[in-house]
Design a protein around this nucleic acid. Structure first.
Lengths: 106, 106
DNA sequence: ACGAACGGTAAGCTACGACTTACCGATGCG
DNA sequence: CGCATCGGTAAGTCGTAGCTTACCGTTCGT
């Protein structure tokens, strides 16, 4: 896999990209369909799809003159894990502090 | 709370900010200490801390001439929840697709 | 075989975010 | 009291991510 994980956060840091992911989560779509639902142009969508594809988050499939994109299960869960790692590392040392604070969450 | 959640992803999208959070997770620190451990200047750290504070992720406490920052448990878990919501929404509709794919990995 | 639909790519513009230097107020110490 | 340390703020620079328009190749339909 030459997925070359671009840090995860960089990828989902962009709102348009998150929208695309959420959109594809509902069901696979062609590029034009995505562009219709988003406030950006079709080329912009194409560029985002490229990033998502490089990250292994989506895969594409030719369907006639159209190109249908869908989420890639493996890529999605890989990214999810990567982000979870951050939280794990953070909350790990952080746990002690929380315990000191005890009841703080109102 | 006028925390005004700046979308979560925007906040942790920046590597320096993530580094600060991880750093504070270990133990509270003064601004200068943070600047020493990071490859950026002290004012830059200050600006990041501002963002993190506005987001309710950290809280500060005056200690003499120094100002000690620490993670805010409530803010951290709130942010975590917010990000989890994205995953939940995404994976929800996505689940069906995964089941269709069944064994597709490898 | 021609025209239309679809989508990827190139080139260029723009806006914004991160960083720096410079300055200032506040606090602690001799 | 000055003097030094610490940190927040202002102002300005710079890089880059995201967007658009324009163009081109490919595929389907008739």
């Amino acid at each position: 896999m030459a997925t070359y994980q671009a840090d995860g956060w960089e990828i989902l840091g962009d709102p348009s990209r998150r929208a695309i992911v959420e959109c594809l989560a509902v069901r696979p779509r062609a590029v034009g369909e995505l562009a219709d639902e988003l406030p950006i142009s079709r080329p912009a969508v194409s560029q985002h799809l490229r990033v998502l594809k490089d990250a292994g988050l989506v895969e594409d499939e030719a369907a006639g003159t159209r190109r249908v994109y869908r989420l890639n299960p493996a890529g999605v869960s890989a990214l999810r894990d990567q982000l979870d790692m951050f939280w794990r590392r953070t909350l790990e040392g952080f746990q002690e502090i929380v315990e000191e604070e005890d009841e703080e969450k109102s």
